[in-house]
């Protein structure tokens, strides 16, 4: 069998080389940078921890796990419910749009690689929405990436995406960025553990300031990022 451990697929999904538009998404970070609320590496580390504890773990990873499970059971209907739940939880319009756009792009990138993914993709736009965490869960499951690995991929890709945005918006060196990434590993692992046995009904997010910054971004005078 090809890629039996799922490791190559996990690497592919975690890589910023994956063409799903991550480099255009800042999830409100551009507003933090623009308003000078984040300036130093320490500020950045703290803010990214907040994203992980408030959003990525309790929302994205929980949705991903539910999608992974539904995909293993071949339950396309349940995927639509995961999408709805995410849609109701992401408060800022641009966060929903970013998640939908990258979810759709990932489906396009892996089109024709697995019949179940294609079945779900056919429903996107009608009964299902195609949010990124849902799609990531489905794709991971069909490629033999374990639920646990998929949650780590989700956390890792989120952090590197925002670190990339930070490096372009602030004046931070590449070694400092790597140090922050390394420092955030325990946080990624911790939010993974906390989210591991939560089911879809427990999906939540609590990031008031991030949500406000995401909404302010809609009316920002200067925009380099879509969210």
């Amino acid at each position: 069998m090809i890629d039996e451990s799922g490791l190559l697929s996990a690497l592919r999904l975690a890589d910023s080389f994956l063409p799903v538009g991550s480099y255009t998404i800042s999830y409100g970070f551009e507003s933090f940078a623009e308003e000078g609320r984040v300036e130093t590496g320490e500020d950045l580390r703290e803010l990214l921890s907040d994203y992980l504890y408030g959003q990525v773990g309790p929302c994205d990873m929980v949705a991903l796990s539910a999608a992974h499970c539904a995909a293993r059971q071949g339950d396309v209907d349940r995927l639509a419910r995961v999408d709805d739940r995410l849609h109701a939880t992401l408060l800022a319009r641009e966060f929903r749009e970013s998640s939908l756009t990258s979810g759709k792009r990932l489906l396009d990138v892996v089109a024709d690689e697995h019949a179940f993914v294609d079945r779900y993709a056919e429903r996107v736009g009608d009964e299902a929405r195609g949010h990124y965490p849902t799609v990531l869960g489905v794709v991971s499951a069909t490629k033999g990436v374990s639920e646990y690995d998929a949650r780590l991929v989700c956390g890792y890709a989120f952090v590197t995406g925002l670190l990339g945005a930070a490096q372009r918006l602030l004046r931070l060196g590449h070694t400092e960025i790597q140090r922050i990434l390394h420092d955030l590993f325990p946080v990624i692992e911790s939010v993974e553990r906390e989210s591991a046995d939560r089911d879809l009904e427990q999906l939540r997010s609590c990031t008031p300031l991030i949500d406000v910054q995401g909404m302010r971004h809609e009316r920002a005078e200067r925009r380099l990022f879509v969210s």
């Binding site: 480099y23 998404i25 756009t101 990258s102 380099l224």
Partner: peptide
Amino acid sequence: ETGACPHTGIREDPSM
């Protein structure tokens, strides 16, 4: 918006 990466937007990842 291309996240301050104009060439990525037209070359490596034109998804947007």
